[in-house]
Design a protein around this nucleic acid. Structure first.
Length: 816
RNA sequence: GCAGGCAUGGCGGAACUGGCAGACGCGCACGGUUCAGGUCCGUGUGAGGGUUACUUCAUGGAGGUUCGAGUCCUCUUGCCUGCACCA
């Protein structure tokens, strides 16, 4: 579909200025003047604003980019007017599967594809007129950049936060690579949307779980909507409880469980292990129903995450001949394996208390296991009671309340040497290697004698070698393993024959620290200079997609906390404030993605309407954080508005601010000054990012001017500055024509609280809460005289029973 | 199941700490300009009733607090978005 089809049926409003020429002219001027350069160590206050950098696909920018970047662009221009040294950088998250898959499909080299795509993005973004500091452009696939990604990995390794082991991980059969939990949310590959399988592989893990508390600290400290914090807390999944150790009858082995309810331990009537629990193999020769157990294990291993979700019904198999012993009362408990217990959480085993846990209850009912009530308050014959209450049937705990009993039992277990208090986390360590080509090579050599040996830092970057064959290997080896000359090397420690690591890092590696590199993109001595880190500090405002809240952001918190701990970053938090933009939907309300049919190419919109109109329209049709259905309806209203702004050049009369327009202008300036961005931040509630209503206020102002037929020079000047942050091209052009010079040299206009209301105000008069009349009063007029006017307007003799007057707003007369 | 969010005209959406509901824009109607269409300019536009003055009803639904509720409280319905057998 071309632009004419898409815009058929809407008014054909012609702009009265040469849109394309004006926009090209100012983009060139800004470029020549280096207008958006952020200045290191400037004496102005710093302001660092960032939207998530671009994954440069071949399709170019999409509407989601425009929705995401226009707000930060507006904030950046606004903050420059407010006298800040603004850093608003641009870069490329260039490694990763989309580029690699595209290169495979088209038979081209990923680095060439990346270079071409970056060129496309650059051209398009310049045409949007975004005020990026292009001199700080970075790409994660550039050796000068990924040298430092590799360096951070070596530091993680040095501090014991990276390790390689065999582990069960998510594996995408289609992309033929290992994925992290964050990459396979809902059991679906984030890249190709295939169902994810489980596989046992050699995995490089990063000890992200060790950073759970620090990540949670960052979650609490960053200024961000509660919903996102909650999603992040859930992802980390902190829960406080105890570990308890149950013996195995006639064996040295024991079952360790994590429980949040140590108070219910007297109610445990059986134990459940995850099917793949290591103990099963160890006890195999005592298990009477070996075949049945092995069969169940085999079935459970084959189930995907989705299959497990679909079968809510609980299944399991008893380990016949195995009994566990409750450490507190010596009770003999049967032991089961069942796939409702997850190997990856806690110890992969639970003490089952059917009276007080819904899942255990279901399982007990199905297999006819006893249910013992130990907390009073429910009806455990019919359903599990998970609430608090008083302990019964619980020996030493009887009569205690839940909270006290938890504490007492935890202490009791500790004294017995059979348990202790424990905080457990749902979040897993981060599987960090991918069996794909287009990523950062690991600076690691594998030596038969010395194990995994890191390369010397001085040898970084370990450059990704060029190869004609970078297709994934069905055996699950990284494509680099085919490059035998590159793989073979000498061990840095013993000099003997060794091999390089052939896997590469995931596409989230380079994005886990990139905001820091913008501070010092050319540095070849360190990842960022200390002085620049100290000058710029945290990103003041960071925006991006909601989908990155439980992924990129958690990785970012992890790496940043690590860099802080090792003393490499002087500030604790990477970002001060985070906002997430809503999605762009098509007119039918479906998600508009760049791959789908319904996508609208932003370039067509620029060609037809220009960047100024496009930006205003995008901001006008919906709120930043809400999903927005894209439509061309109404876009001509924006063109008409800018036409009227353009026409004001012929309506200039007088200087100063006319009394007629004074309160209107002050209200507009206040609306913009408070509604674009809350400077200072730190507040719980923000009242900014109100771009749609600021545009409405500008339209109101323009309507008033048109009605009056004149605008003063000073009014026009202030109005153009406000509009400039939204529509920089046209306003620069008009400003130059009317006033001479560059509008960007101006300061943002100021407003006066005392001038927001005109000298006389029209207020509604209510009688018993019903609107009856309007009266005109002086600004701040006293209640007595307003009340007299109101009574007169209502035609009432004598006093009111009561009168409520809200100054300059409303008066309500009560007369029964 | 748990958590978070949303609900206002024909449509997108306004409404600051409770204070004229529907700003602004689109659409629509009528009028002007035009040979005509488009553009442009003007007027009107929540629903019902009345010839007018006016009046009743309206922010998913039901109650409540208040002089006054889209906004606060209780209950309820529908939709969206995360996480989901996490012990």
């Amino acid at each position: 579909m071309d632009i004419d089809d898409m815009t058929s049926g809407i008014k054909n409003v012609k702009p009265r200025w040469d849109v394309q020429a004006v926009e090209a002219k100012w983009q060139r001027i800004w470029d020549e003047r280096g207008a958006f350069r952020a200045v290191d160590f400037s004496s102005k206050p710093k302001f660092y604003v960032l939207s998530e950098f671009f994954g440069p696909s071949g399709k170019g920018i999409h509407l989601g980019h425009v929705k995401c970047f226009t707000p930060t662009e507006i904030v950046a221009r606004y903050m420059r007017f407010k006298g800040y040294n603004v850093l608003y950088p641009v870069g490329w998250d260039a490694f990763g599967l989309p580029t690699e898959n595209y290169a495979l499909k088209t038979g081209r080299q990923p680095d060439e594809v990346t270079r071409d795509n970056i060129a496309i993005f650059t051209r398009q973004l310049r045409r949007m007129g975004f005020s990026f500091d292009w001199s700080r452009e970075i790409s994660t696939a550039d050796p000068g950049y990924y040298r430092w990604t590799q360096w951070i990995f070596l530091k993680l390794l040095e501090k014991g936060l990276a390790y390689k082991t065999k582990g069960e991980v998510n594996f995408c059969p289609s992309c033929q690579t290992v994925l992290s939990n964050e990459d396979s949310q809902g059991g679906i590959c984030d890249r190709c949307h295939s169902p994810v399988a489980k596989a046992t592989r050699d995995v490089w893990y990063l000890r992200m779980r060790d950073y759970s508390e620090k990540i949670l600290e960052a979650v609490e400290a960053i200024d961000m909507k509660d919903g996102y914090k909650e999603a992040q807390r859930n992802w980390v999944g902190r829960s406080a409880g105890a570990v308890a150790e149950f013996g195995i009858e006639g064996s040295e082995e024991s079952i360790r469980v994590f429980t949040t309810r140590p108070d219910t331990i007297y109610g445990a009537t059986f134990m459940v292990l995850a099917p793949e629990h290591g103990l099963v193999a160890k006890l195999m020769d005592r298990i009477a129903n070996r075949d049945e157990v092995l069969e169940y294990q085999r079935l459970a291993a084959g189930k995907s995450g989705i299959e497990k979700q679909e079968s809510a019904d609980k299944t399991g198999v008893a380990l016949e001949g195995v009994s566990a012993i409750n450490p507190v009362n010596g009770a003999r408990l049967p032991v089961f394996i069942a796939d409702y217990v997850l190997a990856s959480y806690g110890f992969g085993a639970v003490m089952a208390v059917p009276a007080h846990d819904g899942r255990d209850f279901d399982f007990a009912k199905k297999y006819g296991l006893p249910i013992i009530e130990v907390i009073s308050g429910g009806d455990v014959a019919h359903e599990a009671y998970e609430g608090d209450g008083t302990l019964v049937n619980s020996g030493m705990l009887n009569g205690m309340r839940t909270a006290a009993a938890k504490e007492a039992m935890t202490e009791h277990l500790r004294k017995m040497g059979r348990g202790e208090a424990r905080i457990n986390y749902r979040m897993q360590d981060w599987p960090f290697n991918r069996q794909r080509y287009w990523g950062e090579p690991f600076p690691i050599v594998s030596c038969p004698k010395c194990g995994h040996v890191p390369l010397d830092e001085a040898l970084l970057p370990l450059v990704l070698p060029k190869t004609g064959d970078f297709s994934p290997d069905p055996q699950g080896n990284g494509p680099l393993s085919k490059l035998t000359d590159w793989i073979r090397c000498a061990c840095p420690v013993c000099g003997g024959p060794a091999k390089r690591e052939s896997d590469t890092m995931p596409n989230w590696a380079g994005s886990s620290w990139y905001w820091l590199r913008f501070l010092d993109p050319e540095n070849s001595e360190s990842f960022v200079s200390r002085e620049k880190l100290e000058y710029w500090g945290a990103v003041d405002l960071y925006t991006g997609g909601t989908e990155h809240v439980t992924r990129h952001m958690l990785y970012a918190f992890f790496w940043h906390s690590f860099l802080f701990d090792m003393g490499a970053a002087p500030h604790k938090l990477p970002f001060s404030r985070r906002m997430c933009n809503g999605l762009i939907l098509d007119e039918a309300g479906r998600k508009m993605s760049k791959s789908s049919e319904n996508a609208i190419d932003p370039v067509l919109v620029i060609d037809r309407f220009g960047a100024d109109v496009f930006r205003l329209h995008m901001m006008f049709i919906g709120e930043y954080e809400q999903n927005t259905a894209w439509t061309f309806k109404g876009i001509t209203g924006i063109t008409g508005f800018l036409n009227r702004v353009f026409d004001m050049q012929g309506m200039i009369e007088g200087d100063g601010v006319s009394p007629k327009h004074e309160s209107l202008l002050h209200r507009l300036v206040k609306k913009a000054d408070t509604g674009i961005y809350d400077i200072g931040g730190g507040k719980k509630e923000h009242n900014d990012f109100k771009f749609n209503t600021i545009i409405a206020s500008m339209m109101e102002f323009a309507n008033e001017i048109r009605g009056d037929g004149y605008i003063t020079k000073e009014e026009y000047r202030q109005f153009l500055i406000v509009l400039n942050v939204f529509a920089p091209h046209l306003t620069s052009e008009i400003y130059e024509a009317v006033f001479g010079g560059d509008i960007m040299d101006q300061a943002f206009p100021s407003y006066d609280e005392g001038k927001l209301v005109g000298s006389s105000v029209e207020i509604p008069v209510q009688l018993n809460g019903r609107l009856k009349a309007l009266i005109s009063v002086e600004r701040d007029e006293g209640q007595d005289s307003v009340e007299r006017k109101a009574l007169a307007a209502l035609g009432i003799d004598g006093p009111a029973d009561k009168a409520i007057y809200v100054k300059n707003k409303i008066i309500n007369i009560i007369k029964r």
